[in-house]
Design a protein around this nucleic acid. Sequence first.
DNA 1: CATCATATTGAACATGTATTCAATCTCTTC
DNA 2: GAAGAGATTGAATACATGTTCAATATGATG
Lengths: 191, 191
Amino acid sequence: MSPGLVIHHFGSKDDLRVACDRHVAALIREQKSDSMRAGAGLDPMAALRTYSDGPPLLAYLARTLVDGSPHVSELLEELVADAVAYMAEGEANGLLRPSDDPHARAAVLLLWSMGALVLHEQAARLLGVDLLGAPDQLLGYLRPALEVMGQGVMTPDAYDQLAGAVRTDDAPAATGAEPTPTHGATPTQEA
Amino acid sequence: MSPGLVIHHFGSKDDLRVACDRHVAALIREQKSDSMRAGAGLDPMAALRTYSDGPPLLAYLARTLVDGSPHVSELLEELVADAVAYMAEGEANGLLRPSDDPHARAAVLLLWSMGALVLHEQAARLLGVDLLGAPDQLLGYLRPALEVMGQGVMTPDAYDQLAGAVRTDDAPAATGAEPTPTHGATPTQEA
DNA sequence: CATCATATTGAACATGTATTCAATCTCTTC
DNA sequence: GAAGAGATTGAATACATGTTCAATATGATG
């Protein structure tokens, strides 16, 4: 490809990127509605991976997510909305637990998934798994992820205790026993 | 700051970045051992946030994580190792559930946390929360995160069913009932 | 105050990358 | 197969960014 070509067709390199963003967004949407028509809540990302051009497309997604392209941001919002619908269905079927805030829960889960995608290089170091690679390589990630998603990491007692501290009364005012409610900004290492 | 200055002191702009990476890594390590000396498993990230220069430092971390700086990668590996230790302790104290693979679980949790940090711009859109901002703004993220971390999102029945499908027998060979184990590459929307 | 080492500057230089544009190629259409 | 529209090229240009280097400022030490 010659440099002049992209200008002729897209006006500028930036406009090409916008077109690409739009294209991946469209592809993922399409893939998503495909799997919706097929069987209930098949993950479109997983389905994408089986596509021939899935992994490179995911790689592009991973790069684009961090620079806040408007089209990808929109896509994310749609994916959250879809996930809320799926999960409501899952709840009705007795598969998923109810949530205090289904939208927030779906958003957090999507952020985590996408975050792992963006950090695939780090995931490779930490887990020895290429998140952008073949589906069968993915178990090293899926297994611990499912463990957490399935049961959580905390015992019921510990959860009750912490859940009280994060109650809906926004300001850290009431209880008085614990002055600074800095229990853990990232949910990683509350121990 | 004049351009020549950074060359004089660091040799090149790239070397300055390396020095910065080293510096944030050192700061976080220090912060971490501080909170270890103080009370058990206080989250160093949360503590960082209370520092005056915490948020900008986290912003730098978020940017650096995606380009795979060696020092930050090392830091992540250390944080995982530390998290494993913390979580083993938490398990002994009856706060955390045991895991089939504690290291993998810690790695996944760290990846998710850091991923959310990296995607703070998207988090702001989806949750209306600035992950790099003041700690009191964080509840909108912490609440759903804790919900998931605490109890998981799946009912025990659903978990048992899926856990069987991801068993330790690597290849998707045995059971025969379900041919393609593409249950969900991202744990987001299995419904 | 002289001297020296170090910090600091800014203009020149080098390099990489985006864009312009005139020329050429490749089809389709009549 | 001539004409023309759109595709494609590559060299020239513009611009941004990292680096070099000689000159100057600053602050310490004798």
